[in-house]
Every structure is written in structure tokens, then in C-alpha cells.
Design a protein around this nucleic acid. Structure first.
Lengths: 258, 258
DNA sequence: GCTCATATTTCACATTGTGGAACAACGTTC
DNA sequence: GAACGTTGTTCCACAATGTGAAATATGAGC
């Protein structure tokens, strides 16, 4: 049984730095070294050095006139990342349902993890008995699935090359394992605005995927429809248009108007 | 000449913890221990303990299914404090201008500092030649100025008592130095919704102030009008109503509808 | 110029933070 | 079911960084 994080040892100086951040409130947005020292029962020199780190990191600022400290704007940027993740899931959820009903196939919402893999963060399974089971929370290699192809297509080139350098394992006869061939495939994804993967990960499994953009146009997630090839083969183009339209609607909700 | 914070020594472990926070991005909202270790060129055990502190503090969370880390919701709360401060100044600014034009006196925006003092964070000077000069950034004791009385009036009782326990220095014959008398004064402020200070800080100086509330009704700042007593004495009531109405308009802009 | 309060720096000291290694857990393959 | 690989988690010997009391710097008020 795993210990809760409350039980593992933490770093006292990091704990103290976080306590400083939490000392600020709406009623008391500005605090000085001495006040923080008294409030947190720490020596002033300790508080001073902690503030130096927080300030260098942008998590607090010092007002040059009053010498008081306040929370820094970098917190707004970091918090924006949190809110954006919450936003995507919540905003996308009804569209996933809608697309699953219309297509009668499994629909997933996918993002990149940090190490060049992709992961489903939400999904609606197909109502049919024959369907691919939910893969929420499980990481996958991106080169052989439609959502992965979309995410790779819109990565900065350097990051893409780093991922390709790790190799492209073969899963079926149809898996693309040649980096040059994959780059061509990604060019096509950019051109047509969606990706298709037919039996590249698993025999009998096909999917389409389209990019979801934020207000700046950055691709931050992907919506995909997947199912057995015997059902999807004949309606791939139709599903691609439907998925692309749904992705555009979600992007619009996120502030993308391009 | 003071050193910039970039030049003073900081705490390496706090710097590292902040580097972990900054490693997350919109494109890569989920990162694992090993990925962070590689990205930041730190041993996994070091990253693990840093994450333990950040997680206990709520600045990151671990997804139990994927074991990946993401930025935590506490960042949203802290960032909210930053935005609220920015909001108050920006939202209030045009109202300060308007009140300065209408009253033809100096108008200030005031908040509490952590140690029981108050400070002006914005202000519009009177257009007249005879006026009190700007006191932006300078701390004052609250008991003898109108904006201080408002802020004290809406403090939690414990916090108020802690401040009163520090003593009430006399500045003029009219300064209130008796805590019982001040409590009565603060009761009156709560009843009438504004405060008056006439020559309590300085002979010849008078002011009125009214509370600015956030969407929850919490008093977070104060707007005040001040000037020489020979001008203000006869129009104190009128200025009080004008100031109170301006404060209410700002409060409404901040979401207060009560 | 003196006093006071707060911010900032110094320095001797030791506690906490370090990081390599080991272990645990889990999924995949055979 | 065993073996393997990968990642998360824990352990432990060690020392570097963090500590905090004291000193110094700074600026405002008188």
C-alpha cells in the first residue's frame, strides 16, 4: 500500500517557501520581511533568503518604494496552465458525448505527456458491443495512432526530432517505422487538418483524429474516433470531417477564431 | 546602492522546486519523475522529494492513475490574489479620477499592510494649489486617518485587538488614543458606511473614506478624499456621500451586489 | 546628528539536503 | 508463471547547503 505524500519526508526549506506564499491574503496583499518573520516564526535572515529565491523565480515581487513583498505575476502564468487543463476537459466533454452519439464509435480526448508519448485524459466508449475498450490514463507511442500523429504534426521541429530519434517501433505490418515516411505523413496531416491510422497499432483497429487549439492557435489536445476497421473503413472520410468539425467547435469555445 | 535580487544568494532547493513548477507547459501539462529528472538534470530521488514538498503544499498534484504530476489548484488560488490586486487598481483608477474632478480634492486608494498599518497604492492629487501632497507608498498608522478607520472597522475582531494592543499614538489634540473610544468610532463607521477624520493626524487636514468590497463583500481597499480643513469642514457630509457612492460603484465592478 | 525600525549581510556551525544505489510496483513478453 | 524493463519510491552515508544570531546598512523622523 502506498504511503500518502503527507507521510513522506519533504524538504523543510521548500515547505517554508510555500508557507511564505500562503501567508499573503486578499486582506493583506503586501507583507514585509519582519512581518513574515513574525507571522511564520522564522528568523528574518531565513525569510530574506527564501524571498530571494521566490523573487528570482518570479513567485513574489518586492515593491521598491515600500520594500514590501507581494505575490508575483509568474503565479498567474502557472495558474493559467492549471485552468487551461481544467477548461479543456470540461469544455470538451459535451462534444465528446455528441461525437460518440453521432459516430456510434469510441471517442477520446488526448494530450502529450512530457516524454514523447500521448495519453487519453477523457473518453466516451462506443455504445456498440464490438468496440475498443477505454484506455484512459494509459500512455501510448504517438507515431502509430491518429491522435499521436496530430500531436506530432504540430510540435516544434526540434521537439519532434527528439521524439523521432527514440525510434519508431513496429506493431503491425502497416506501422510507419521510417522517419522520412512519417514526416511525409505529418505533412499530410497538416494539410488536410486531420490524421488517419488504419491498423498501424493493432490489426483490426482504425481511427481518425483532429487538433484542438487554444485561443492562440496552439494545438493543445486532440479528439479522436476509433473502432474496428470493418466498421470504419468505409466511413473514414465522413468520420474525419465530423471529427474535424467537432474539434473546431471545441477550439472555438477555447477562444480560437482563426 | 542596493544589489539586485539576481545577485544575492538564493536557496538551491527552493530554486529547484520553482524550476519544477516552470517545467510544465500547456503542451506538456503532465510530467513524471523520470522525465523531470532528465529535463532538469537532477537525480530522481532529488526530484521526488521536491515534488513531495510541492504536492504537500498543493502546488502540484499527482494523477493516481498515471502517476504523472501536474500543477496544483493552489496555484489558482494564489494567482487569484495577484489578479485581485491588479484588478482593484485598474478598476478603481477611472473612479479615482472622476472623484478627484468632482470633489476637486486629493483622492487616494488605500489597503492594509500586514503589520497593522495602511498604505496608499494609488492616488489623484487635488488640482488646487493648496493640497496635501501624494503619499503613495508610505505607510501610516490607521487609527487617526479616515481610510485607516474604515479598514479597522471591517477587520476580524482578533486582528483588530492585536493592532490596538500596539498602542494609539497621539498626533494632535484630536487624535483618538483611547481604545474604547476608537471602538465606538468604528461602530459608527460600520453604521454610516464611511469614516471621517478631522485634524486627527495633522492640524488642518481632514478626510472622508468609504469601503471597497470584493464580490464576497469583504473590504479589501478604501477610497478617500482629503484636503485642508478650511475647505472640507463645510462639505464633509456631501463629500462623504459622494465618496461612498464612488466606493459602491467600484465594489459593484468587483462583483459586489449586496 | 541621533534614534529607531526594518532590510540586508556576515559567518561559524550543524542539520538538512544530496544522489547513488537499492528496492517496489507494474506492465509486457515469452 | 517467470523474466525483463521501466518508473516511482525508499534508504543511507556523506557533506554541502541552509541556518539563525549578530552585525551592518539604510532611510525616515525628530
Amino acid at each position: 500500500m502506498k504511503k500518502k505524500k503527507g507521510q513522506v519526508s519533504t524538504l523543510r526549506s521548500v515547505d517554508r517557501a510555500i508557507a511564505i506564499l500562503k501567508a499573503f491574503s486578499e486582506e493583506e496583499p503586501e507583507l514585509g520581511v519582519t512581518e513574515l518573520s513574525q507571522r511564520l516564526e522564522l528568523p528574518k535572515s531565513t525569510v530574506y533568503r527564501l524571498l530571494a529565491s521566490l523573487q528570482r523565480g518570479g513567485l513574489v515581487d518586492q515593491d521598491p518604494e515600500t520594500e514590501k513583498y507581494r505575490l508575483g505575476i509568474e503565479l498567474v502564468r502557472l495558474a493559467g496552465l492549471v485552468l487551461k487543463q481544467i477548461d479543456v476537459r470540461q469544455i470538451a466533454r459535451p462534444y465528446l458525448h455528441s461525437l460518440a452519439e453521432t459516430s456510434e464509435e469510441t471517442v477520446n480526448l488526448t494530450v502529450l505527456t512530457g516524454d514523447g508519448k500521448v495519453i487519453n485524459i477523457d473518453g466516451i466508449p462506443s455504445p456498440r458491443m464490438v468496440r475498443n475498450v477505454g484506455w484512459i490514463g494509459r500512455e501510448m507511442l504517438p507515431h502509430c495512432i491518429s491522435s499521436g500523429k496530430v500531436l506530432l504534426a504540430y510540435l516544434p521541429q526540434q521537439q519532434l526530432e527528439r521524439i523521432l530519434a527514440k525510434g519508431l517501433p513496429r506493431f503491425t505490418d502497416k506501422t510507419i517505422t521510417d522517419p522520412v515516411r512519417l514526416q511525409e505523413e505529418l505533412n499530410q496531416v497538416r494539410q488536410q487538418g486531420y490524421a488517419v491510422a488504419q491498423e498501424e497499432l493493432e490489426v483490426g483497429l482504425s481511427a481518425v483524429a483532429a487538433p484542438i487549439r487554444n485561443h492562440e492557435g496552439t494545438v493543445i489536445a486532440v479528439i479522436s474516433v476509433s473502432g474496428p476497421s470493418f466498421r470504419l473503413s468505409e466511413k473514414i472520410s465522413e468520420l474525419a470531417q465530423l471529427t474535424k468539425r467537432t474539434a473546431d467547435e471545441i477550439s472555438y469555445q477555447l477562444g480560437y477564431t482563426g
